[in-house]
């Protein structure tokens, strides 16, 4: 796991919902998405639509129409010294043979790539000088939009988004959250969003799972009280309620 471990998590994700995974930093919540996408060694059972998924196999996860926006934006999420357009299509060319022209040998169709990138740039309002600008030169927020564009290009059924708003400006934050909600409402995309920011989870999610000390503490609704969220994040929710019951 990425520096933190999570274990014994049993979690159902419903089709078409936005599930939040919250908790304090370092409690293990980012391990879930990374594990399911095969980026870090993990064990257990994962089922999608009833079909078991092999773990530790990134390609199978991608083939099962799941996409991941990593919390490690610059390390895992981007090819910093490549153009915006290539970043957006790179994974799709490999996993789904998209953007490759016909004929032999089948080469990348640069025109199609540029057209598509221009559309994504407009849709996500990526502030750049053009589709060929290097991603390294973009601000954190715009880099994050490129990551999301790359994930959507895979046309996933489930989108894992980890820490989508970490270290980015408030304008980009709003745009990214709005866009995620829009994808969910308009295209029925199931989203699993991991974030350390409880406020934003409560803003966009249908349900919020709280991870504490590497375990699933419980699942709350965004409308539940601050007290319950506080107790769950501190890992005292069940202790407290047991005492109350006594």
């Amino acid at each position: 796991m990425p520096g933190e471990k999570v274990q014994g998590v049993t979690l159902d994700v419903k089709r078409g919902e936005i599930l939040g995974i919250g908790g304090l930093a370092g409690q293990g919540k980012i391990g879930i998405a990374n594990g399911i996408m095969g980026l870090f060694p993990s064990e257990g059972n994962v089922r999608k639509d009833g079909t078991p998924l092999p773990l530790n196999a990134p390609r199978t996860s991608l083939d099962s129409r799941m996409a991941f926006v990593s919390e490690d934006r610059r390390g895992t999420g981007l090819l910093l010294d490549n153009s915006i357009e290539f970043n957006i299509v790179a994974t799709a060319t490999q996993v789904q043979n998209k953007f490759l022209g016909g004929g032999f040998p089948s080469m990348i169709d640069t025109k199609q790539v540029t057209d598509y990138a221009r559309r994504m740039i407009k849709e996500l309002d990526i502030r750049c000088t053009g589709p060929t600008q290097f991603v390294r030169r973009l601000s954190g927020g715009n880099q994050q939009k490129v990551c999301i564009a790359r994930a959507i290009t895979l046309e996933p059924e489930i989108l894992f988004v980890s820490e989508p708003t970490r270290g980015i400006d408030i304008g980009a934050k709003k745009l990214i959250l709005d866009h995620l909600v829009k994808l969910n409402r308009e295209q029925g995309l199931t989203i699993v969003m991991t974030s350390s920011e409880l406020a934003e989870l409560r803003l966009v999610c249908d349900r919020i799972a709280i991870i504490c000390r590497g375990r699933l503490e419980g699942i709350l609704l965004p409308t539940d009280s601050d007290r319950d969220f506080g107790l769950m994040m501190a890992g005292e929710y069940h202790n407290f309620h047991r005492k109350e019951a006594v």
Binding site: R59, D72, T76, G77, L79, L80, N82, A90
Partner: peptide
């Protein structure tokens, strides 16, 4: 596709792994 994969691997191995 293979040539592009090679460039992706070179540009960022972590990204390449995450792309399967």
């Amino acid at each position: 596709r293979t040539g592009l994969a090679m460039s992706i691997v070179g540009a960022n191995p972590r990204f390449a792994e995450a792309s399967g």
